[in-house]
Design a binder for these strands. Structure first.
Length: 275
DNA sequence: CTGGTCACCTGGAAGC
DNA sequence: TGCTTCCAGGTGACCA
């Protein structure tokens, strides 16, 4: 599921718990991608001060009852995770409902069938630690300029698709939004990143920003697993121009959309209007 | 450093 | 119907 838009949709849905104090927590599966901390012992009595997003991570800042920083959860949804908000008491847990965080009258519940997600706990500055310290710039950051983006693309010999996925030049594009952004910008995913002209890089950055923003507004993309915090599906899949449309006609030029494999992962593109 | 491979898990769809 | 195989939105460890 979850690329940047889905994580942002999730964050906005979970905002309802900010300012509230944890009254209980349950960890039913002690291991996702990494061991899950003992939240039932750590969190009760702490107040959720803020909930931020960086790339595809959620950053949960907790304070103690004196208002002093008490620790931070850095969580990731992996391939199949989603959070759901329930009024307390939440219904009986279903399959793959691994973690509950109870904030009095609301319960936040993590479901993750494939368990590729993660929940880490740190008492340090999470932005100074892995994994957050290694991330490239946020797509909506004003500090990310077309020129800076182009310069980052010059530093690698990888294809533009691999480079976007790696998140070194800009974070947030996973497999779906990579294909969509490159299609919108008219650039083949197999092009080497360093071959993009300044004009092409600027166009690509513009399209990445537009598509991610539209996907957030649509509630994200639901292919299989993802659901919004209110249980609804995301609708951006309806707006995908090329992703998952191998053999269909390109909406711009009518040629057939093809699927290629790069580093073991599918890319979809139109050989007619992407150069 | 960089690129390539594989592992982590479950489940849905397609093929036979 | 039932079994097998392939594929899936993401990371990160390991190896050449």
């Amino acid at each position: 599921m979850p690329e940047l838009p889905e994580v942002e949709v999730t964050r906005r849905g979970l905002i309802c718990a900010v300012g509230k104090t944890v009254t209980a927590a349950a960890v039913r599966i002690p291991r996702l991608r990494d061991p899950v901390p003992d939240f039932a012992g750590l969190l009760p009595g702490l107040r959720l001060a803020s909930l931020e997003r960086r790339a595809k991570y959620l950053i949960w800042h907790f304070e103690d009852q004196q208002g002093m920083p008490a620790g931070t959860i850095v969580s990731h949804l992996g391939m199949s995770g989603f959070w759901r908000v329930w009024p307390s008491p939440a219904p009986a847990p279903r399959k793959h409902d691994h973690v509950d965080l109870v904030f009095g009258d609301v319960t936040l519940r993590l479901n993750d069938a494939r368990r590729f997600g993660s929940m880490r706990w740190t008492t340090g500055d999470p932005y100074a630690e892995k994994p957050l310290c290694d991330l490239g710039p946020e797509p909506f950051s004003e500090a990310l300029t077309p020129l800076g983006f182009w310069q980052a693309l010059q530093k690698t010999r990888r294809s533009i698709k691999e480079t976007l996925l790696a998140g070194s030049a800009v974070v947030g594009c996973g497999n779906i939004y990579c294909s969509e952004s490159l299609f919108a910008a008219g650039i083949l995913p197999t092009r080497s990143a360093s071959s993009l002209t300044k004009k092409e890089a600027a166009r690509l950055l513009t399209e990445i920003r537009r598509i991610l923003a539209e996907a957030i507004a649509s509630g994200g993309t639901t292919l299989r697993d993802f659901h919004g915090p209110d249980g609804s599906d995301g609708y951006f899949a309806l707006d995908c121009q090329v992703y998952g449309r191998e053999g269909e006609a390109c909406p711009k030029c009518g040629r057939l959309i093809v699927r290629i494999v790069q580093n073991g992962r599918s890319s979809f593109c139109c050989p007619g209007c992407q150069k």
